[in-house]
């Protein structure tokens, strides 16, 4: 019943669903950037964020990353020119070295820092493992680096704003050194890559309930990887938070499984072509099967005029 409702809803409003999702994602991203590192006041206006998100709603999703990078660099430029230059360099390096291998998954670079901010970082690797491929781990790793880079800037805002007698070279060395020494980055890159690759491998296995096994195994192995890594690297990690995260990630995995198997994402397509005789303007609508429970049979007979639903 729920599946059919969902399917009907999707087929009815599919033209609006993706633009609305892109708009909401872009809006949440810009508002989060503004609230966390809103150093340039002229950019923090919600109207500007809404306008940028509206543009993103009709453009390809990859442009959310470009707009976000622009917002981030401009905000940090207000704080420190050196930091802004380093941020720009980081984005260029990530773009040139990694994004070109997995441009489809680039949106996870935005989703990963967002999920860290919302304290649910396990959700993104679980979802990318279920719908992506092992190359998604590159985008997720880039997202982890971006998050910890921005976190460092927020945590050390006053020092960056007033560097004292430190030269530009000393400032750059200090920032890069702090980022390179941050073991959390390595820990989460390894743990998330393990989740993505494991989930991807298991869900492709030709065994019954492969998706369920993949979700459970990914969640549990990811949790173990974080806990063992934290002990090995001598890092402080909240065990309860990680367990909560794992449960949430597993739950989301099952929700995603339900959506992916219930809704036919083949869209209604409008195609045009021609041959020697005709021009064809075709609207191809995917077939929707109606479940038995929704079929109503009304029987009318002389003996009893009762309607019933089997």
């Amino acid at each position: 019943m729920a599946r059919d409702t969902l399917r009907n809803f999707y087929s009815r409003y599919e033209i609006f669903i993706f633009p609305v999702i892109k708009f909401l994602l872009a809006l949440i991203t810009y508002l989060t950037i503004n609230s966390r590192i809103g150093y340039m006041e002229s950019l923090t206006s919600p109207v500007l964020s809404i306008m940028a998100a509206l543009i993103n709603a009709v453009l390809p999703p990859g442009l959310i990353i470009v707009f976000s990078a622009l917002f981030i660099v401009l905000h940090i430029y207000r704080l420190s020119l050196v930091c802004a230059a380093l941020t720009l360099m980081l984005f260029i390096i990530l773009f040139l070295a990694f994004f070109r291998f997995a441009p489809k998954n680039a949106i996870t670079v935005v989703l990963m820092p967002l999920s860290f901010v919302m304290h649910v970082p396990f959700l993104v690797p679980m979802c990318t493992g279920l719908v992506g491929n092992p190359l998604s781990s590159l985008s997720v790793s880039c997202g982890v680096v971006v998050y910890y880079f921005l976190k460092f800037i927020v945590d050390n805002e006053s020092v960056i704003r007033n560097p004292g007698d430190a030269t530009i070279a000393e400032q750059v060395t200090s920032i890069i050194g702090s980022i390179a020494r941050n073991k959390n980055i390595l820990l989460f890159i390894i743990a998330f890559s393990v989740i993505i690759i494991l989930v991807w491998l298991i869900r492709r296995l030709p065994v019954p309930h492969n998706w369920t096994i993949a979700i459970l195994a990914g969640g549990l192995v990811g949790l173990m990887a974080v806990l063992i890594g934290a002990i090995a690297m001598d890092l402080e990690v909240s065990v309860f938070s990680m367990i909560f995260n794992t449960i949430l990630a597993i739950a989301l995995g099952f929700v995603l499984q339900f959506f992916l198997f219930s809704v036919d994402f083949t869209r209604t397509e409008y195609v045009q072509f021609e041959d020697e005789e005709y021009y064809y303007y075709v609207r191809a609508v995917p077939k929707i099967s109606v479940s038995v429970s929704e079929r109503r049979v009304k029987r009318v007979s002389k003996a009893s005029k009762v309607s019933r639903t089997p």
Partner: peptide
Amino acid sequence: VKSALSITIVYVLVVGTYIFCNVE
């Protein structure tokens, strides 16, 4: 070729930053 070009730019950026930090 495109990949080689990309990695060269990345390497130049990284080495450039390293030299800049240690120039003194």
